[in-house]
Amino acid sequence: MSGSIDYGNLMHRAMRGLIKEVLTDVAANGLPGEHHFFITFDTGHPDVKIADWLSDRYPGEMTVVMQHWYDNLEVGDDGFGVSLNFGDAPEPLYIPYDSIKTFVDPSVEFGLRFETQDDDDEDDDENEGHADIPEILRNEERPGEASGSKSEASKPAKDAEVVSLDSFRK
């Protein structure tokens, strides 16, 4: 048995399961009401599948919006595929859950952020060995860099209220 409980990875697995469950429901029933998603993912992840011109344009990360127009949403155990509209040209994407950096539904002020220790500014020894530290976001809306939505920039961004698990650590 290990010397400690890996809460960070357990939380990430639970949060990715939530994303999978939400997308499975959307694939079966469509987006209800005003719901829409801003999904930021690592375009350099080895299992991400996007067009070459998109990976050239967004070499580190890309934010996509699922709102007015999306097609062929297929949800799997390790990720999801969807076609989104980029300048009136549909493009298929495959996004593994473990490549997702943020998942935000601004219509209900809900968001998840997946961060690794490398993303944190703190270098103190207290945090050493804690690989993945998830954060839950509220009141965050990030306009997408690339989008499946025609109205991505129509709403102003709100300030984020971040609740960090570090504040509960001793």
Score class of each variant (00 low, 15 high):
Glu152Thr: 13
Ser83Asn: 14
Pro156Ala: 11
Gln67Ser: 03
Val48His: 05
Phe86Val: 13
Arg16Phe: 05
His45Met: 11
Asp125Leu: 10
Ile133Gln: 07
Asp52Cys: 03
Asp166Val: 07
Glu91Arg: 13
Arg169Ser: 02
His45Ile: 04
Gly44Thr: 14
Ser167Ala: 13
Gly76Ile: 03
Leu54Asp: 00
Ser83Asp: 15
Gly3Val: 00
Asp98Met: 07
Asn9Arg: 14
Asp105Val: 04
Tyr97Asp: 06
Asp118Ala: 12
Met15Asp: 13
Glu61Thr: 06
Asp47Leu: 12
Glu34Asn: 14
Phe168Thr: 09
Val82Tyr: 04
His12Met: 12
Gln117Gly: 05
Asp25His: 11
Phe114Ser: 09
Ala51Arg: 11
Asp120Ala: 00
Gly44Glu: 13
His68Ser: 13
Pro96Glu: 08
Asn139Ser: 14
Asp52Ala: 14
Pro59Asp: 10
Ala160Pro: 09
Phe168Ser: 03
Glu161Trp: 11
Phe37Asp: 06
Met66Phe: 02
Gly60Glu: 15
Arg142Cys: 00
Asp123Asn: 10
Ala51Tyr: 04
Ile5Arg: 09
Ile95Gly: 10
Val22Leu: 13
Ile95Gln: 09
Ser55Gly: 12
His45Leu: 02
Arg142Met: 06
Pro106Asp: 07
Ile100Asp: 06
Ala14Tyr: 08
Gly111Ala: 02
Val22Ile: 15
His45Arg: 03
Ser99His: 02
Glu128Cys: 06
Asp42Met: 04
Asp56Val: 02
Lys170Asn: 12
Glu128His: 05
Thr102Leu: 05
Ala27Asn: 07
Met11Ile: 08
Asn29Arg: 12
Thr43Ser: 14
Gly60Asn: 14
Ile50Val: 15
Asn139Glu: 14
Tyr94Asn: 05
Lys170Leu: 09
Thr40Trp: 06
Pro106Gln: 02
Glu91Cys: 02
Val64Ser: 05
Ile100Lys: 03
Ile50Gln: 06
Glu128Tyr: 06
Glu115Ala: 11
Gly76Ala: 11
Gly148Met: 06
Trp53Cys: 00
Ser149Tyr: 05
Phe37Trp: 14
Asp159Phe: 11
Tyr70Ile: 00
Glu141Val: 10
Ile136Gly: 01
Gly3Lys: 09
Pro59Ala: 05
Asp88Pro: 02
Ile39Met: 12
Gly76His: 10
Ala153Cys: 01
Pro59Tyr: 07
Ser147Gly: 01
Lys20Asn: 12
Thr116Ala: 03
Ser147Tyr: 06
Ser107Val: 02
Gly129Tyr: 00
Ser154Ile: 05
Ala157Cys: 04
